[in-house]
Simulated scan of single mutants.
Amino acid sequence: MAAPISHGHVLVEGFTVVPVRYSAKSKAGHCLYLKSHNVQGQDGFKPRERTLFILNVPSYCTEACLKRVFSPCGKVLNVYIHDKPTSGPSPPKISKFFPLTTESLGFKVAYIVFKDVGSVQKACQLPYKTPLILSTPETPLLTGMRKWCADYAARQVDIGELQTEVSNYMEKFESRMEQEKEEAKEAEGVPDAEGWVTVTRHTKNKAAVKFAVGEHRHRGRKRKKEKDIASFYSFQLRESKREHIATLRKKFEEDKQRIALMKAARKFKPY
């Protein structure tokens, strides 16, 4: 089915198709799919009226590149690139040397936040016959061998920066541990809403081991109950053995009397 063409721009399933090329000399093309960002609820980072949602973004495309390409539609405030559609901003890079997530090499999605409401509509009306150029001589995008070399150089660890980051992390960690220790001391002996009392024991390695007194008492009652049940069954077992022995004794006495009668009946009486 042919895509509908309206005023020079092509629509496919509600998305505006915009062709792009890596450079002005490139013969191979690529297409981006644009539409207004519509989600339920309010998103402070990506307002619905001023956010453009883009699919099929190449992995080599950067936030600066998208900002430059769509700036003619209006002033761009923020650009977010994600591996898949999501709400909120991109996760912050806490560490330079220890990233929490790995970068995806496939196509991505992007969100462009404009200053004016009409900028999204202008972007969705971009003509299909005029491709956008991603890499220019003034702002080139690194690909191929140059990108690999740049990535390799970026992965080289600077010992001084690494030591500084590790030292800062350890200072924050120790400060957080001291704060938790102080909070545990303040909360010690104070019952909570359910009546539980938290008792803290500090070991030699300064680690706090917490347990609840109520839980300890509950375990004691549970063990006592199990012991009582075991004692009850032991009492029943002793009583059953005693009754069985008494029954055997009674039967033994009856058998003795029966044997005595039988012996008396067999005696010879001539007169």
Rank of each mutant, 00 (worst) to 15 (best):
K210N: 14
I245C: 10
R238G: 02
K250C: 06
K241H: 01
F235M: 14
H216D: 03
F252P: 00
K250G: 00
F211L: 04
E243S: 10
S231P: 00
H216V: 02
F235V: 12
S234P: 00
S231I: 08
D228Q: 15
V213F: 00
L237D: 06
T247F: 13
Q236A: 14
K241Q: 06
S240N: 13
A207S: 13
V209P: 01
K222L: 14
R217P: 00
R219K: 06
E215L: 07
E243I: 01
R242N: 04
F252Y: 07
F232C: 14
I229T: 07
K227Y: 11
H216Q: 13
S240W: 08
S231L: 14
N205M: 07
E253H: 06
K204E: 07
E215Q: 14
L237H: 12
K256S: 03
K256N: 03
V209C: 04
R217E: 05
E254Y: 00
R249Y: 05
F252R: 11
K206N: 02
H218F: 08
D255R: 08
E253L: 11
H218A: 15
F252Q: 12
D255C: 02
I229R: 11
G220N: 10
F252C: 12
F235Y: 13
T247V: 07
R249L: 10
T247R: 15
R223S: 09
G214S: 07
V213W: 02
R238V: 04
E215R: 06
R242Q: 11
S231F: 08
K225I: 03
F235R: 12
K225E: 07
R242G: 01
K256Q: 13
G220H: 06
K224E: 09
V213N: 00
K250M: 02
A207N: 08
D255M: 08
S231Y: 09
K222S: 06
E239K: 05
K210P: 01
